[in-house]
């Protein structure tokens, strides 16, 4: 018993020696240990604040820091390299981000297609054995171009090719075309991802463009005449490219949306039947009157043609009479070409 009492006495003495770590507060503080933050909603002592501002603030803050660090010291600790480290909980005070939450990168056109078709990427080795050269050739990069050059030191001239054509330059241009096409596609993917409208690109080199591209080019070119392609010939069974409506204003828009409901469809069909069955010759009064007047005019002119003046008076008069006749049909006369030169006067 004596030992216990002495120990208690000793500890009490020790405690007296040090200042206390506990603090009394009217209202509990709000803590966020994740950010090491304490919010004290207790009323401030206005009199002390006015008289001894800095001392009061020091004491107030000391108490609050003591309370905050008491909480921090209670957290689970671990030792890392002779330092005692405390594990902080996730912070509860919500702070805004500097930049928005990243969005997942949209798929490229090829990736979309591959996903749809279930095409998976094949892993290719960095080096592959070349039978012809008898050595390992990298897939791309350093020493690849040299190997290619070594391999293709001679090129065959195809049967139908121009014998004077340089096959090496041809291969080179084709390669550069492919590269630029790929760059174009890359840019198109970026534009799609950023939702930017880019103008339509014209036809790329026919050697590297697809059949669809060529079809588009043909359709657009055909409609690019003054008469919007109305008089252009067509091959039998030739198809028009789709999705180029804004570039071919003369094209007929044949397709219609399918009717939304069966009721609507029925009404549409009945309308067509009605229109066919109820067909009657329409009388267009204006047109009829015009035709009548025209007929009269023709008759009158016939009369005048047949009428011969009994006595010739003046050449001037006969000329005028000649002008009254029917206008010459277009395209039959001889063209003189432009005679007057200079500014057009009005």
């Amino acid at each position: 018993m004596d030992v216990v009492a002495s120990i208690l006495e000793q500890s009490a003495k020790d405690a007296e020696k040090y200042k206390p770590v506990s603090v009394n507060k009217h209202l509990e503080l709000e803590y966020d240990l994740g950010t090491i933050l304490a919010i004290d909603n207790n009323e401030l002592d206005t009199r002390k604040l006015r008289e001894k501002k800095n001392d009061y603030l020091l004491n107030l803050t000391r108490d609050n820091v003591q309370l905050l660090l008491n909480k921090v010291w209670d957290l689970p600790t671990e030792q890392i390299d002779e330092a005692i480290v405390v594990k902080l909980p996730p912070s509860t005070f919500v702070l805004p981000r500097g930049k928005p939450v990243p969005k997942p990168r949209p798929l490229t056109k090829w990736q979309e297609f591959a996903k749809l078709k279930g095409i998976q990427k094949k892993k290719k080795g960095k080096l592959s054995w070349d039978e012809q050269l008898k050595k390992w050739v990298p897939l791309y990069g350093y020493k690849r171009a040299a190997a290619e050059k070594e391999k293709e030191w001679v090129l065959e001239v195809p049967d139908n090719a121009n014998p004077m054509e340089d096959q090496f330059t041809k291969a080179k241009t084709l390669k550069s075309e492919r590269v630029s096409k790929n760059e174009l596609q890359r840019m198109r993917n970026i534009a799609k991802a950023r939702n930017v409208k880019v103008p339509r690109v014209g036809l790329t080199n026919p050697d590297v463009s697809s059949a669809k591209d060529l079809q588009t080019a043909v359709t657009v070119a055909r409609s690019s005449t003054a008469s919007l392609g109305k008089f252009q010939d067509k091959l039998p069974k030739e198809k028009e490219a789709r999705g180029v409506m804004e570039l071919t204003p003369g094209a007929t828009r044949k397709r219609k949306m399918p009717p939304a409901s069966s009721d609507q469809e029925r009404r549409q069909n009945l309308d067509i039947v009605d229109a066919v069955l109820n067909k009657r010759p329409k009388i267009d009064i204006e047109k009829a009157v015009a035709r009548h007047i025209n007929q009269e005019q023709i008759e009158r002119s016939e009369e005048k043609k047949n009428f011969r003046p009994k006595s010739g008076k003046k050449g001037n008069r006969t000329k005028k009479l000649k002008g009254v006749g029917k206008k010459p049909a277009g395209g039959r006369g001889q063209r003189k070409g432009k005679t007057s030169v200079g500014r057009k006067r009005r």
């Binding site: 020696k17 770590v21 501002k53 800095n54 020091l58 000391r62 008491n70």
Partner: peptide
């Protein structure tokens, strides 16, 4: 009122230290 203090960790006889501040 914005104040900035250095935290001094003093002995307290228990695990948590006694906090003193110095401006």
């Amino acid at each position: 009122l914005f104040r900035s203090y250095k935290v001094l960790l003093k002995k307290s006889g228990c695990r948590t230290p006694r906090i003193e501040l110095e401006e």
